[in-house]
Design a protein around this nucleic acid. Structure first.
Lengths: 213, 213
DNA sequence: ACTATTTTTGGTCATTTGACTAATTTTTTC
DNA sequence: GAAAAAATTAGTCAAATGACCAAAAATAGT
């Protein structure tokens, strides 16, 4: 870990090629992270995975740390975009929320390794001095998206509704996180399914509770 | 990472001293993990922290991996023991559950670094081939303890009650995990508090739901 | 096509790291 | 209190790793 001369090396006008390579490296890093985990991932593995020389990697990213955090940012952005374009229905409020949760979980089940990596990287960011903001940004973004997906199609934009969406969004996010951890640790499909149903019921009841008060 | 000759080296009759040193190393490892995180922890840091030579560490633990997993086991055992000896009250069922959750959270707030390390180690165990069982054991144990704490003092030991306790235990564990992550990421005391209250309400409603069906 | 800039490459380096051994010291047992 | 077993120690080692540089190659702007 020697000192770094990123500022001088950084290009004034990044090329199209540069952007592509950058993206490829990030993708390679994600692949490497999924198969090896954050503890075993090395710049060489990432470079190999991205079909790029080691020095090229260091040309684009000042350090391994920078790269890993870039992966997390990328992961966040793409996952959020995914949710954004989903779900345009307009059921009954409670059904809508239930469907949202199911939709979220369907995505989680389709990308378990990604979820795992994201968890690892979130903890990594929290551990990395000066990068805690990334974790905060991530959670803020998630909560915001969840809120919007909840409120969506309700017609009004009552500030009270916004508050409810926010609270419910936080609740659901927490529930999903907890469920992810349990499903990873216990690997029991039936229990996971039951947990999901429990979360749906709980979210519904919590919604009622919020609407009452 | 050469191969290891632990079997031959292991003592036939471990001494009192040995047990003490072992415990000291585990404690040192925990300290090191708390301050450095799993990504930066080294055997040397651990040894220094435990005031033990590096070779001594390797005498007691076949490998870094073994040691880290031992830390996780120790952490689980001690935290569970902590919960066991707590809470002997016998309120109304709903109040009892609410108090339980508050009690759990109080402990979490008293030991944030430990919670963080435990999370890191759980992910580490899940990543470490052949050690996934440790994570499973951990969660099973937690769920079981939660279940017992929930059912405790209800008088009957109806199998239906057991089922309810189990489901509610899983639910609460997930909720706590989710809340821990959010509180770490967002670092907002008020939001965390609100999240806790939400969990309590949700658990109460979920309990009612379980009792109804 | 020429030039300036960006990008890539091959090769190098210091350091860290986990693991290991042989010898010494401490503890236990009889 | 002597022998045996256990525990500790100092010192060594190979491998891995992140970072870096100087030079070559590719690309873009004019």
């Amino acid at each position: 870990m020697t000192k770094n001369s990123a500022i001088e090396r950084n290009p004034v006008r990044p090329t199209t090629k540069s952007v592509e390579t950058r993206a490829r490296i990030i993708r390679g890093a994600l692949d490497a992270l999924e198969t090896h985990g954050i503890g075993e991932v090395t710049t060489r593995k990432i470079a190999a995975n991205a079909k790029v020389r080691l020095a090229t990697l260091h040309y684009h990213f000042d350090s391994k740390e920078t790269l890993l955090l870039a992966v997390l940012e990328d992961l966040n952005a793409s996952m959020l975009a995914r949710y954004q374009e989903e779900l345009r229905n307009s059921d009954d409020f409670e059904t809508h929320v239930a469907e949202l949760i199911r939709s979220i979980w369907r995505y989680v089940e389709r990308t378990p390794e990604q979820q795992f990596v994201q968890l690892e990287l979130t903890l990594y960011a929290l551990r990395t001095k000066g990068s805690e903001w990334l974790a905060a940004k991530q959670y803020d973004a998630y909560i915001d998206v969840y809120k919007r997906l909840i409120v969506e199609g309700r017609g009004t934009q009552d500030p009270a509704l916004e508050r409810i969406g926010l609270a419910l969004g936080r609740f659901i996010l927490g529930g999903i996180d907890g469920l992810i951890l349990q499903s990873f640790a216990l690997r029991d499909a039936a229990d996971t399914q039951a947990g999901l149903e429990a979360l749906i019921v709980a979210a519904r009841d919590y919604l009622r509770h919020l609407l009452d008060s």
